[in-house]
């Protein structure tokens, strides 16, 4: 059974349609990239998956359960900016991932806190941020902040990771490193990922599938009359050419073939 099922959802803001007739299923462990022009509902779709908003029509189920209308621990999110808490040190940002949901006050009792700090240091060590553990996020570079944001989202052990243009503000070199970092983490955790991006090569490099959002109906006199939907669902495994290892069926005559089809039929 499919892990995430999006069943014919529509999303309107007031009278303005954003998404229409969006249906998609995803398996557990799949990496789905989402691309499309600005303002065509990619981020809206991500917000719906996050459960930050409820669709006007239709339903999203995760593991058979319909969404409840409030973000919860089953999903982790990384935004382009502002994903980490500026008033906590790098280490405490990771500790907070465990502490915030621990009880009503979001404060861990001290023996648990010590253990959480040790775990936080261990994962900082692994992601190469141990040397800045006691600094505040503002003093970190953009790439380091995003690495921290991803680690923080993963520390909550979500089943689905949502990424909203996570590398959009990074320079190309840092972006390459972040791709490798994300691929490693994914190989380790095998979690389901949805990533919105504007970078097509990135979408195909990281994703198993690439969804393109666009408007299928377009009224030049009223550009906002119709919403967007998924127009393409590419298989992006093996760099976007998933069947390249399978011998292709060609209709071209092969000179090495001993019995050409035309000769045999004639």
């Amino acid at each position: 059974m499919s892990f995430v099922v999006v069943d014919n959802i529509f999303q309107h803001y007031g009278r303005r349609p954003i998404l229409e007739r969006v249906s998609i299923t995803a398996q557990e462990g799949e990496f789905v990239s989402i691309v499309g022009a600005s303002g065509c509902g990619k981020s809206t779709f991500l917000r719906l998956l996050l459960d930050q908003e409820r669709p006007t029509r239709g339903q999203i189920t995760v593991d058979g359960q319909p969404l409840t209308g409030e973000p919860n621990r089953s999903r982790g999110i990384v935004f382009q900016r502002y994903s980490v808490f500026p008033h906590m040190t790098v280490r405490d940002n990771l500790v907070a991932a465990e502490a915030l949901g621990a009880n009503l006050f979001g404060i861990l009792p001290s023996p648990k806190r010590r253990a959480a700090r040790e775990r936080a240091m261990a994962s900082l060590d692994r992601i190469g941020l141990a040397h800045v553990a006691h600094q505040y996020p503002a003093s970190l570079s953009g790439g380091m902040q995003q690495r921290l944001a991803i680690a923080q989202a993963l520390a909550g052990k979500p089943r689905i990771l949502l990424l909203d243009e996570p590398f959009g503000a990074l320079d190309p070199g840092t972006r390459e490193k972040m791709h490798a970092f994300l691929m490693d983490l994914r190989a380790e955790t095998k979690m389901t990922v949805f990533m919105v991006t504007h970078d097509l090569p990135e979408a195909f490099k990281l994703g198993d599938r690439v969804l393109a959002f666009d408007k299928v109906r377009w009224d030049p006199h009223d550009p906002e009359a119709f919403g967007a939907t998924i127009t393409y669902d590419f298989d992006a495994r093996d760099g976007g050419i998933p069947y390249q290892r399978i011998k292709e069926e060609t209709h071209v005559l092969d000179a090495t073939d001993e019995t050409p089809p035309l000769a045999s039929s004639g």
Binding site: L50, Q52, E70, P71, N72, R73, R75, G76, I77, F79, R81, Y82, S83, V84, F85, A96, A97, A99, L100, G101, A102, N103, L104, F105, G106, I107, Q152, A153, G156, P158
Partner: peptide, 20 residues
């Protein structure tokens, strides 16, 4: 974004008010 992030980490409204 910070508030949503806190929610996805399981924070209650009180925890968001107190810790974030």
């Amino acid at each position: 974004e910070q508030l949503v992030k806190a929610q996805t980490l399981g924070a209650s409204s009180l925890a968001i008010a107190l810790r974030v």
